[in-house]
């Protein structure tokens, strides 16, 4: 009886693994199809602009408010630790580097997955459930070119913009706490920052990270929607999976990218 149960568990695990690999392959295929049918997203750039509005502009508020608070908390926490070593002027460096290199791209991507990613999944899933994608197919219009690709490129455009804004607003939040509130010298705050934050190594690498996260988050959201079972329950599950998968993908990719960037 125990053996039987064990066997069933093992076979369930195996089936789960195979399913994951299958989905990975299907996602990769959708990614490829999206890339090769992207022409229309640029020829009729209006389609993409429309989606930038929905994914980027509508995510602006949550990104900016979060950035402000993250920056303030970083400054508070950083000051608390740095002053023990008598180097509280280094607070500017700490806030800026933490935001530009890590928190900007990563937190933006996580918030993006929650705000825009779920919206994309639900929208595509519902379009599928209500046969809108089928209808498009029957009108000889490829849903990948007309629906998936513009959303993909919109996500890839919106993410770095959001991440850059996140970093900038976060630094302003850190400045507000460090300089007027705690009383760190403003000159030291900025000059230490400028001396230690490198344009290419820190800022551009951060932007590059956010572009990669943009590709990953948007593609995951699109795939989950496109692959969702065409029922209310299927779409709601797909939405949850979007958040889980995107978050894990972002954190995993972050580790890989960071290790490459530090090694170089």
């Amino acid at each position: 009886m125990v053996l039987h149960k064990l066997k069933r568990m093992l076979s369930k695990l195996g089936a789960g693994c195979i399913n994951k690999i299958w989905r990975l392959g299907a996602g990769g295929r959708l990614f490829w199809l999206t890339l090769i049918s992207s022409g229309e997203s640029f020829r009729r750039f209006r389609l993409t602009i429309r989606e930038v509005y929905f994914t980027g502009v509508l995510s602006l508020i949550i990104i900016l408010v979060s950035a402000f608070f993250v920056g303030m908390v970083l400054a508070l926490q950083g000051y608390h630790t740095l002053q023990k070593y008598g180097s509280s002027e280094a607070i500017g460096v700490l806030v800026a580097l933490a935001l530009v290199r890590e928190l900007g791209p990563v937190v933006t991507a996580l918030l993006f997955a929650g705000r825009a990613g779920t919206a994309i999944t639900a929208e595509i899933g519902l379009m599928k459930a209500t046969e809108q994608l089928s209808a498009m197919e029957m009108m000889a219009v490829s849903p990948i070119a007309r629906v998936i690709a513009p959303r993909f490129w919109a996500g890839v455009i919106a993410m770095p913009v959001l991440a850059t804004l996140f970093s900038m607003v976060g630094i302003l939040g850190g400045y507000l706490v460090a300089v007027p509130l705690i009383g760190v010298d403003a000159g030291a705050f900025w000059s230490q920052m400028q001396a230690n934050v490198d344009w290419e190594y820190d800022i551009l690498n951060g932007v590059f990270k956010s572009v990669v996260f943009g590709v990953a988050c948007t593609m995951i959201a699109l795939f989950e929607g496109y692959d969702a079972p065409p029922t209310a329950e299927g779409v709601s599950r797909a939405t949850t999976r979007t958040v889980v998968t995107s978050s894990l993908a972002v954190l995993g990719l972050d580790f890989i990218l960071t290790s490459f960037m530090i090694a170089v």
Partner: peptide, 15 residues
């Protein structure tokens, strides 16, 4: 706004 922020990072924050 995105470009402005990037410019801000370049001028004010970065070296």
């Amino acid at each position: 706004l995105g470009f402005a922020a990037l410019l801000g990072l370049a001028m004010k924050v970065g070296n």
